[in-house]
Nucleic acid binder design. Structure first.
Lengths: 335, 335
DNA sequence: CTGAAAGCGCTTACAG
DNA sequence: CTGAAAGCGCTTACAG
């Protein structure tokens, strides 16, 4: 697997490597005869020359590589986001290295280091709990980084996130208006701010409400969800739930919960109402059209790459949060 | 964003860069005093030295980067596979660059070239229709490549695929045994061999059958499926389907089809029976447990990385197909 | 026990 | 109009 280099072209064309480099990079200012130019271009094409970006990067300090660290690329939310980021990155000439942290701070740091060793020009990350130190190190090194989906407080890294608390509050208010006897928030035991914001939105809406529904919370670990949800719902709903609304704070949670409802022949929205955070293709196979909160993934991807590219061009410490609006998509899962 | 180099360590330690390189790479044979070793290691740690893999690669011709080109990373099948490949790659110290071809031969080639410019040590690809020439060029260059999921015939590149035709035939025979009046194969208009194999398996089973069910085929384009499927099913099933079995040859097709059944209140398996190729989380929200053909994605990922790594170590032209067995997972969607 | 030097494939300021 | 040369951060055969 030997590949051709600029040197090969220079030899064939009978010019120096410098001249070849100028022509291939279309540098103006150098006055190179059109004839030479044409000859070099033709030779490059003939031998199917592929520039070595690692060598180029060594000189220019630009790898044209972006690192993306998500919790799990096989998670529909992240794979959808990754695809959009890929498209945006490609437009600007970047390729994407992708890694999954599994919500593990050590693994997260390992990936960040690995990617930085690969000389990525910048990093798009979904930070995990316990990654503060790792992120602060990046800030110290003035490494171009943006956070997506999530954010870590008090770290000077721009974040592209959604209005978690606000939309969660608004959605909860919708539920409150319907006068359910019981409102159940299904969420995570976690310290991740964006998830806590969803819970806080729920809490605020509830405590501001005039009518007082009974509220319950079912909080599970970030991993290994399904059984916990099923068991938790069994306890909460019993055999004859009535006038109850379930608010699932992620699509993973919703899928686990809806599966339980299906298996136990609990009808939506007749027996219980359902509201879910995030979209998933799976909803389309559920008998009832699910009402859910949709994140603007296109915008998130676009903005993330845009901000990162700017940071790569000109670094500056910046903890700006870009807050995008999510939207309530009405289905038929709320009575 | 300036980073530290081997030179910095050498300066601090008062030794040459060669010595630092030897120590950091744990090269034996060089007799370096334990004291010097310890000092260098300590300094590397103190200044948080991160080796520049691009520079290293320039010397060693090993980037420790693998390229993965799939049709679409946001497709559940590929994101699941990608995650498993990521894990396997990481075990061997490789990072993964990922790209989506969108079934487009030009884009596919563009990604292959881009990744080869990034000096990936090898490529794992799901080839698209029309990529023969591109692949043959890779063979000529002795570029380490393996195909997964799909294969292009007569190209000397190892492929890790499943027994599409055989399992499809076996599954179809199961349907035939049930004496359906009508068997409908839902597949793709395509030249991709692995999909044609699924269709051929169906065809063979049908033509070998003693009892003659009526058979129909609904073939759609590789992209923009949903409406085509819905329209096609409407024509085929009419308002009162009876004793009919639908065989969806991919999870995407199955999801579109099941959605149609749901919307039109066609019960599975009472009104129609359903068999699907591939798994998806979405099945779990469908009221009936779907019977489907499960691909061994763990094995596929493992084998792909293993074969590719061997090829990187020692290239040899090799068109071996590794054929993995898929399995029929029984649900309750067949009467 | 350690260092000087060449070279991987590029870019670019400088000289002519 | 074009080339010689230095240098990016590494590795490694060779010399001492």
């Amino acid at each position: 697997m030997k590949s051709t280099s600029i040197k090969d072209i220079a030899k064939i064309a009978g010019v120096s490597v410098a001249t070849v480099s100028y022509v291939l990079n279309k540098k103006e200012g150098q006055k190179i005869s059109e004839a030479t130019k044409a000859r070099i271009l033709q030779i490059a094409k003939d031998i199917n020359y592929q520039p070595n970006k690692a060598a180029k990067g060594l000189k220019t300090s630009k790898s044209k590589l972006l690192g993306l660290v998500v919790a799990d690329i096989s998670n529909e939310f992240y794979s959808t986001l990754a695809r959009k980021i890929e498209n945006e990155a490609l437009k600007l000439g970047y390729s994407l290295i992708i890694g999954s942290s599994d919500e593990n701070a050590e693994k997260f740091q390992m990936l960040v280091e690995l990617f930085s060793q690969q000389q990525v020009d910048g990093l798009i990350i979904a930070p995990v709990a316990g990654s503060e130190k790792c992120l602060n190190d990046l800030v110290t090194k003035e490494y171009p980084v943006v956070m997506v989906d999530r954010f870590i407080e008090e770290v000077k890294i721009p974040a592209i996130v959604i209005n978690n608390k606000e939309i969660s509050k608004k959605a909860t208010q919708k539920l409150i208006e319907k006068n359910f006897d019981t409102l159940v928030y299904i969420g995570y035991k976690t310290s991740l701010a964006h998830l806590l914001d969803r819970e806080r939105g729920f809490d605020e809406a509830v405590s501001n409400a005039e009518n007082h529904s009974r509220t319950e919370k079912l909080l599970v670990g970030l991993k290994g969800i399904s059984e916990e949800i099923q068991d938790g719902l069994q306890v909460l709903l019993g055999s004859k739930p009535k006038n109850t609304a379930l608010y699932f704070s992620s699509n993973k949670l919703a899928v686990s919960g809806l599966k339980y409802l299906l298996q136990n022949d609990i009808k939506v929205p007749q027996d219980v109402s359902v509201l879910a955070f995030d979209e998933t293709e799976a909803y389309s196979l559920f008998p009832t059209k699910i009402t859910f909160l949709q994140q603007p993934l296109d915008e998130m991807a676009e903005k993330a790459v845009e901000v990162l590219d700017a940071l790569i061009g000109q670094y500056q410490a910046d903890g700006t949060m870009t807050i995008l609006s999510s939207e309530l998509i009405e289905g038929e899962s709320i009575k």
